[in-house]
């Protein structure tokens, strides 16, 4: 859906999406890194289970909700990636107390 510009010379950062290593770039938000990864990163909603991807990328739509380093319901479009970050795609209602 998206590709990286050839001009982008930022250093690589390795994150893990549902346990799989994915190359991101320093300064990417989690949502941008997920969309750039080419993987199926659709979450499913807590209401009907419908698949969703980020819609606004600016912190207002909450369609980018994702579990980051064990903390759920985070807005992936507002969080920068960090080396070794563990991302889980949320399916349905988010489990608590795990």
């Amino acid at each position: 859906m998206f590709k990286r510009s050839e001009l982008d010379k930022r250093p690589q950062v390795e994150i893990f999406v549902d346990g799989v290593a994915v190359a991101a770039r320093q300064g990417d938000t989690v949502s941008a890194a997920l969309l750039a990864s080419g993987r199926d990163v659709r979450r499913s909603t807590a209401v009907s289970g419908a698949p969703r991807l980020p819609y606004c990328m600016m912190g207002v739509c909450f369609d980018c909700l994702v579990t980051i380093d064990g903390v759920g319901n985070r807005q992936g479009c507002l969080v920068p990636v960090a080396e070794g970050m563990q991302i889980e795609i949320q399916k349905g209602k988010r489990e608590i107390g795990k």
Partner: peptide, 23 residues
């Protein structure tokens, strides 16, 4: 609400902050 539908602003955000463009 379908995956693959986004705002133009979302695309612009990805372009400015990560150099990502639609392909």
């Amino acid at each position: 609400t379908l995956p693959g539908v986004m705002t133009a602003g979302a695309a612009q955000t990805m372009l400015k902050s990560s150099g990502l463009v639609p392909d």
